[in-house]
């Protein structure tokens, strides 16, 4: 290898440092920024449900937001699974390679392109009145409304990978089941699902990871109440939405607490995504 080639190699190598620096810097800044909050409240910061910015009696706990994030995201996942699973079966099994399937999958892909704030507006002006009309909650805000919007938002993430995995289930296995008298539905549940299970699970985990960090749509719909929601129709706040909401007026201990929440959100999403990617890696 001559000199000019070596220089090129080092140049590429040096370029790859940036992402390391960014990632390292992110962890450093989040941890550094969160230290005052953890120093003041200790582990209690995570478990406390009290969020009180009144000067002199300042007290910050992340539990309402951890709970809000988890409840809305789990709800979103539960709502999206039947839709995502049906869409995958429609595209990759029942109507595989037909024009209707490609129309459907294009439309589902477009869902991923709609900006979060537009989902928020639609939720506010179209979905919220429906929730009010059904008498589910007086103002239409809350965990349930956010969960529905989040569910719609994560469907494309839940389907893209599972579509590919379902297509890959070998035809000969399906034929074996048909030859034994199974109906198509029985083939789906006894052959396709067991064989594609880990891929389907991985894609739902990654979709769940998306829901955890969604900010704008949730901020506009959850009602922004700094408490643990008591029911599905109660208002609340998520980790992402409390940062978006309260950041503007924040400094000192409050800013540190918001950064600490950001750190927790970072850790949770990183864990969830790593779990999903780990399953995918084991597949290939």
């Amino acid at each position: 290898m001559n000199n000019s080639d070596k220089i090129t190699k080092y140049f590429l190598f040096a370029g790859s440092f940036l992402i390391l620096i960014v990632a390292g810097g992110m962890v450093y800044s989040l941890v550094g920024g969160a230290i005052p909050a953890f120093h003041k409240f200790g582990w209690h910061f995570i478990t406390s449900t009290n969020w009180n910015p009144t000067e002199g009696r300042e007290s910050y706990g992340a539990m309402p937001f951890i709970a809000g994030t988890m409840i809305t995201s789990v709800l979103a996942l539960l709502i999206s699974i039947p839709m995502a699973f049906s869409t995958s079966l429609f595209v990759s099994e029942y109507f595989r390679k037909t024009p209707v399937a490609s129309v459907l999958s294009t439309l589902v892909d477009l869902l991923a392109g709609i900006p979060s704030i537009v989902y928020g507006l639609w939720g506010f002006y179209t979905l919220r009145p429906v929730i009010m009309h059904l008498g589910l909650s007086p103002q239409g805000f809350g965990v349930f409304t956010s969960g529905i919007i989040l569910a719609i938002m994560i469907i494309p993430y839940a389907t893209s990978l599972s579509n590919e995995i379902i297509v890959m289930v070998p035809n000969e296995l399906k034929e074996a089941a048909y030859s034994l008298g199974a109906t198509r539905m029985e083939v789906i549940f006894n052959v396709i699902v067991p064989n594609a299970r880990s891929g389907i699970v991985a894609s739902y985990i990654l979709a769940f990871g998306r829901a955890l960090g969604e900010t704008m749509a949730v901020t506009m719909l959850i009602g922004n109440a700094n408490k643990v929601p008591h029911s599905l129709f109660d208002t609340g706040n998520t980790m992402a939405s409390v940062i978006a909401n309260q950041f503007g007026e924040a400094d000192g201990l409050k800013l540190s607490s918001l950064i600490a929440i950001g750190l927790l959100l970072f850790v949770i999403t990183a864990l969830v995504n790593t779990a999903g990617k780990f399953i995918i890696k084991k597949l290939s």
């Binding site: 992402i19 960014v22 990632a23 992110m26 989040l30 990654l206 990871g209 998306r210 955890l212 960090g213 969604e214 900010t215 992402a240 940062i243 978006a244 950001g262 959100l265 970072f266 999403t269 990183a270 969830v272 995504n273 790593t274």
Partner: peptide, 9 residues
Amino acid sequence: ILQGVPSIV
């Protein structure tokens, strides 16, 4: 991992 970090963070 970076791809999955919420944009608000």
